[in-house]
């Protein structure tokens, strides 16, 4: 019985899912593993941390204001005596969620527009003129208009925090896909004329398959770079938005905001900029390494070696 099951299992596993190959290759990439481990650590830190570190991020303890690191406040406090550690944790939740979703949105829109424009000649003109339009729009007045038109509706629909979250992700995503689109299109234009694409097309591969099997995998690396830069961009843009009063309420911490508020205190309380600055940089760095590993793992030419 036992023999049979193992045998069955082996034969069953024989046509191995290609994602296992990807994982095997990913595992050999040391930077990617460290990056992934660190990213998971950051996720645990910001989402599970508040369970163990129970100080309220919004609680003002005025006697403890502008303190350096101590046992009661390992990362010090801000000018109102709010605990920096718990603010980094709570702020990280928002920043990571905004950063990841906004980046994904921008990436999906950008890649879609870029591939369609590069691959289908008929769509190229209109899609690229649309990209030009979005690049030319004045960002701030546009934001003011979007906020004016949609904030109250979204707030009524999803509540103040979720409503603003959707708005911010939408706003950042919709205003930062253009670079990705231009880059992907440029690569696709060149790729389209390569021999293997011509070969695949000559045997009658339908466009959908062409794009998913031959085009997309070959434009992955610029997309990965865009993704990494996109996260950093989204986290910083979010702080700029809340500074303009277009983002989350002012007592709602995010990494970008903590860094912004701490900048004036650079000389007196350097830990106020060091921690959020490190959090943003290291997160972006870890995403970068994950991206590197993924790219290598998804590249069949490298995978075999």
């Amino acid at each position: 019985m036992t023999d049979l099951t193992t045998l069955e299992a082996e034969t069953y596993q024989k046509p191995r899912n290609q994602w296992w190959d990807v994982w095997d290759q990913f595992k050999t990439h040391k930077g990617a593993l460290i990056g992934a481990a660190f990213f998971i650590f950051v996720l645990i830190f910001v989402f599970l941390g508040p369970i163990f570190w129970t100080l309220d991020a919004q609680y003002i303890d005025i006697r403890a204001r502008s303190q350096g690191p101590s046992w009661a406040h390992p990362m010090g406090t801000d000018q109102l005596g709010r605990d920096t550690l718990s603010r980094i944790m709570v702020g990280g939740q928002t920043s990571l969620l905004v950063g990841l979703t906004a980046m994904l949105l921008a990436l999906i829109v950008g890649t879609l527009v870029g591939v369609l424009a590069g691959y289908f000649k008929r769509l190229d003109g209109i899609l690229m003129r649309l990209t030009d339009l979005f690049l030319a729009l004045p960002l701030l007045p546009l934001l003011l208009v979007i906020i004016m038109l949609f904030r109250d509706t979204l707030r009524a629909q999803f509540g103040p925090e979720k409503g603003i979250f959707i708005l911010i992700v939408f706003v950042i995503g919709i205003t930062s896909w253009m670079q990705t689109a231009r880059i992907v299109r440029g690569d696709v234009l060149a790729l389209k004329e390569r021999e293997f694409v011509l070969a695949a097309r000559s045997i009658g591969t339908p466009p959908y398959r062409m794009i998913t099997r031959h085009v997309l995998p070959n434009v992955l690396s610029p997309i990965m770079v865009s993704a990494t830069l996109g996260i950093a961009n989204a986290i910083i843009t979010e702080s700029a938005l809340s500074f303009l009063g277009l983002g989350f309420p002012s007592d709602f911490p995010t990494w970008g905001r903590l860094l912004f508020d701490g900048t004036d205190w650079l000389q007196r309380n350097p830990e106020r900029v060091i921690w959020p600055g490190l959090a943003i940089s290291l997160t972006v760095l870890s995403v970068n390494y994950i991206g590197d590993g993924l790219r290598d793992a998804l590249d069949p030419r490298i995978r075999g070696r």
Partner: peptide, 11 residues
């Protein structure tokens, strides 16, 4: 380069 890009100019 990654740290350089993550640190915004206001800081």
């Amino acid at each position: 380069t990654m740290v350089g890009f993550s640190v915004p100019p206001f800081f």
